[in-house]
């Protein structure tokens, strides 16, 4: 604090943080094994959130638009992936490892291609012409797109949950004492971390990535540099969509069940994660996703003085409001305004 006198809000925030640390500490001391197990569950859930949050943040970074349809693209592609696994490959719990691997690989490709095509189409149809319109117009269109995609999923898959057999075993990879890391968690983490690294490298170093950054900072100047702005924005939506597709399949494999409206709440949670980390910031999206995943699992999994699952939504969206009010730039967001 440069002013020397901390504000009341700052003090309150500090107090809350202290309270949370004490709460986590007590829980850890009471049952360290359970604590670490819950930590891994939260980390895995957070990784799924992170993948979806990355899509929000990529699109926001380039258009300053919240693509509310993103969560529904995620859900629809997950459902399509379930069809590929069940109807095309007919996998069951008894299927051989070879078939399962091929089926997952094909489902991943189908989900990613479908989701990126859908996302690019949404931008082309819904957002492109509104680029110079007031922000609210694009936002309303985004909400409309969300309902359309959700209802397409409803029309195809009806209201029932689509469930697949557990294909990634939840047997332990390694056990230390009574703490175990299972294959299905490792699978999710092993996919998310390289995706983040690859994405960060791409945005920082490649020609496409630099075009994306330039376009996000000044669209007209980018066009004057010879960057095809429309193509760059389409590329960004394709990238965000393919992440949503991958997240859809991962969610399905890990939680084994989803339906047409799974993307609505998950989308809002992932959006919260993106805002928490600092919207527009890739590392922030992952950090925010993992934090929200941890908060949710700690809240639902720890034993001592825990609010419990009924309060998860209130806590998560309370965080969203607190961040928007007290620190709109998020944990890692740029402090400097856009432009100069």
């Amino acid at each position: 604090m440069p002013s020397g006198r901390p504000s009341l809000v700052g003090l309150l925030g500090l107090f809350f943080l202290l309270l949370i640390i004490v709460w986590l500490g007590v829980n850890f001391v009471k049952d360290p094994q359970e604590f670490i197990n819950v930590f891994f569950v939260g980390l895995t859930r957070g990784a799924v959130y992170a993948l979806i949050a990355l899509g929000y943040t990529l699109v926001y970074g380039i258009l300053q638009l919240i693509n509310f349809a993103h969560g529904d693209v995620f859900a629809l592609s997950g459902l399509i992936a379930s069809s590929v696994l069940l109807s095309v490959f007919g996998v069951t719990t008894d299927s051989g490892a070879g078939l399962v691997i091929v089926a997952i690989a094909v489902a991943l490709i189908v989900a990613m291609v479908l989701a990126s095509t859908l996302n690019v189409t949404i931008e082309f149809v819904g957002y492109r012409r509104l680029r110079h319109a007031p922000r609210l117009a694009a936002l309303i269109t985004a909400i409309g797109m969300s309902f359309i995609v959700q209802n397409i999923a409803l029309a195809i898959y009806d209201v029932d949950y689509q469930s697949i057999p557990r294909l990634i075993p939840n047997s332990s990879v390694l056990t230390i004492g009574e703490v175990a890391l299972q294959w299905n968690k490792l699978f999710v983490l092993a996919l998310t971390i390289p995706v983040l690294l690859a994405l960060t490298w791409m945005v920082r170093e490649t020609r496409h990535g630099k075009a994306m950054r330039a376009t996000s900072q000044d669209r007209d100047a980018s066009a004057m540099m010879g960057i095809d702005v429309n193509r760059t924005i389409s590329f960004t939506f394709a990238l965000a969509g393919s992440l949503a597709g991958a997240a859809g399949l991962l969610f399905l494999l890990y939680f084994t069940t989803m339906r047409y409206d799974t993307g609505f709440e998950l989308g809002l949670i992932a959006f919260t994660a993106a805002v928490l980390g600092g919207i527009g910031n890739l590392t922030g999206a992952v950090l925010g996703g993992i934090l929200i995943g941890l908060i949710q699992e700690f809240n639902e999994g720890l034993a001592w003085a825990t609010p419990g699952g009924d309060w998860t939504r209130s806590i998560v969206f309370g965080i969203l409001i607190a961040i928007l009010v007290f620190r709109p730039s998020g944990l890692l967001g740029e402090q400097t305004p856009e432009g100069e």
Binding site: K210, Q217, D218, D220, A221, M225, G226, I227, G339
Partner: peptide, 30 residues
């Protein structure tokens, strides 16, 4: 616009319009 640039017309715009969060070298690269 991007095709006009490719044909050989480039511009230093009014108000400079640099990419503020890119380095000087990256701006030149763009």
């Amino acid at each position: 616009a991007h095709e006009v640039v490719a044909m050989g017309i480039s511009q230093s715009p009014e108000g400079r319009r640099l990419f503020p969060r890119m380095s000087v070298l990256e701006n030149l690269e763009m």
